[in-house]
């Protein structure tokens, strides 16, 4: 985490934008999972008692798709807040730097400018801490999305077991399980990339 906070703002801007772009892809995959869940529900309904064990699974998968989309939206909002905060931090840092350069050339010390510089340094510190908080929050959200993806993969394994007793519908239900498994794996990979990107910046 320290590496993130110590990174140059321009790196942070670019990395945050990249994370947001990656997560837009995750959002689309989550849409696909919800679609797969709806498809599975229809198949399970046709299969009747032979696929009764599949119904709670499809409910779970549907909920997971929705929750992933919600988390991605949250990440995007937090990322936007973080970018605004980083911009403020950068501007304050620049102002402080230029103020110090000017003050270093004063013929005599100015108590007024000393006070302005002190206030500005405090504002800059507060902005920097705010950026760190946003980054922590962002990383936690990414971990939560990864956890969801892991749970979805476990659920797809259980789906395959349930599919074996679904008779004629086995192939259809296995296909749904494969779709969910692939989607969850893809989400996990993308989110891992995002986490690595944030962790290794700077």
């Amino acid at each position: 985490m320290t590496a993130i906070v110590d990174a140059q703002p321009k790196d942070l801007f670019a990395s945050t934008a990249t994370v947001v772009a990656h997560l837009e892809g995750v959002r689309q995959i989550a849409n696909g999972i919800s679609l797969a869940a709806a498809n599975a529900k229809a198949v399970a309904a046709r299969a009747g008692n032979r696929a009764s064990g599949f119904v709670p699974i499809t409910n779970f998968i549907d909920e997971m798709g929705r929750e992933t989309r919600r988390l991605v939206d949250r990440v995007n909002q937090d990322a936007q807040r973080m970018v605004r905060g980083m911009l403020a931090e950068q501007r304050l840092g620049d102002a402080l730097d230029r103020l110090h350069k000017g003050m270093a050339r004063l013929e005599e010390r100015s108590a007024y400018l000393d006070g302005i510089a002190r206030d500005l340094a405090q504002e800059h510190q507060a902005a920097s801490e705010s950026t760190k908080r946003h980054l922590d929050s962002l990383c936690e959200l990414l971990v939560t999305i990864t956890d969801h993806a892991r749970a979805a993969r476990m659920m797809s394994t259980r789906s395959r077991v349930e599919a074996t007793i679904a008779g004629d519908y086995q192939t259809s239900l296995e296909s749904v399980a494969d779709t969910v498994d692939n989607a969850a794996e893809h989400i996990r990979d993308v989110v891992m990339k995002c986490r690595v990107l944030l962790r290794t910046m700077g």
């Binding site: 230029r98 103020l99 000017g102 050339r105 004063l106 013929e107 007024y112 400018l113």
Partner: peptide, 19 residues
């Protein structure tokens, strides 16, 4: 401009109280 500020600040301070 931005690039002039660090030179302007001490120059102005030499002529008046910035405050």
């Amino acid at each position: 401009g931005i690039e002039t500020f660090s030179s302007m600040l001490p120059a102005v301070a030499a002529r008046c109280d910035i405050a």
